[in-house]
Design a protein around this nucleic acid. Structure first.
Lengths: 167, 167
DNA sequence: TATTGTTATACTCTATAACTATA
DNA sequence: TATAGTTATAGAGTATAACAATA
């Protein structure tokens, strides 16, 4: 993950207060960096790393988007999208073609090679998730996934709202 | 949070597969970035941001550490620790004094001002955590904290093991 | 005049190495 | 010779602005 996962920090060794065993910030930092670490390996041979993964996921279903709409979907700047797609196209994981209805825009498509690679990465990622939760029994793991997903959805809503306010 | 939180990405808009509602990677990304967003505000007026917070927490209890041991404790490079402490000392949140037993080393101490500021930030951070979990009832929130903390602890152990292997 | 995509430039952060002073 | 701390330099990554083509 050359890009956003390049940071080396693992952040903090111990929870702020040993007694306060449920320091949420600390737990989120640790889990997030642990996931990042295992996920980095899964996307290591993807040119562009984690970002490339997000792009491929976004391309895997639905209509071929323009570079700009793709950039917005994965929250990247359109200028880095150019570099990223250059790289992905050089590795034949995506292709670009002019949009027949707007000659300024280019449609981005995932190739069969890209789909195959995406499937591999997804598989590897699923295994990595499993390792992360290895200590939890099935019920606890399911519960954690559900609760996290609930918090994530509300967080996402607030995030979008925040964006549209023009920040 | 001038440093590690300066990145703007929010990462991905939707879970990879709408049916797979419990995509752990997506949930972790969303929750982590949401927490980062709210936490950023809490530590905004701390010179050095999130890192300064971790440093102050590490200094708040126990013996005054050397810069190097402090750096290791919060997983920072000793060179950035120099800059960070310069900044914190300029704002009188910490002080440095020579270690009487090793004149190469300097002991880092948190000041009363530093403690006061740390208390403020902790308070603000607790409120931010509350907002993040606002949609969960008390039981669910407690459960999430517990499960996350369990995963975090095992992740931390693996992380240390990984480090000591010399990576 | 606004928008899509590209390119070039500047800036920030991190990592590496060199330097000092001690041990 | 090795270690604690500092400083300087180089590199990676991001953001900003300028540009060409089209709407």
């Amino acid at each position: 993950m050359s890009a956003s996962m390049s940071e080396k920090e693992k952040q903090s060794g111990e929870p702020a207060d040993p007694a306060l065993d449920t320091d949420l910030g600390w737990a989120i930092r640790m889990v997030s960096s642990a996931f990042r670490r295992v996920a980095t390996e899964s996307v290591a041979d993807l040119p562009g790393g984690a970002r490339a993964y997000l792009v491929l996921v976004a391309l895997a279903g639905g209509e071929p988007p323009s570079q700009l709409s793709l950039a917005r979907k994965v929250s990247l700047d359109r200028t880095v999208m150019t570099y990223l797609l250059d790289d992905l196209e050089a590795h034949e994981l995506v292709t670009r073609r002019p949009d027949p209805r707007d000659r300024r825009a280019r449609q981005v498509l995932i190739t069969d090679t890209g789909r195959a690679r995406l499937a591999q990465v997804r598989h590897s990622l699923a295994a990595a998730e499993g390792r992360l939760l290895a200590d939890l029994d099935a019920d606890d793991a399911a519960q954690l996934r559900t609760l996290l997903a609930r918090v994530a959805r509300t967080a996402q809503r607030e995030s979008s709202a925040h964006d549209e306010a023009g920040c």
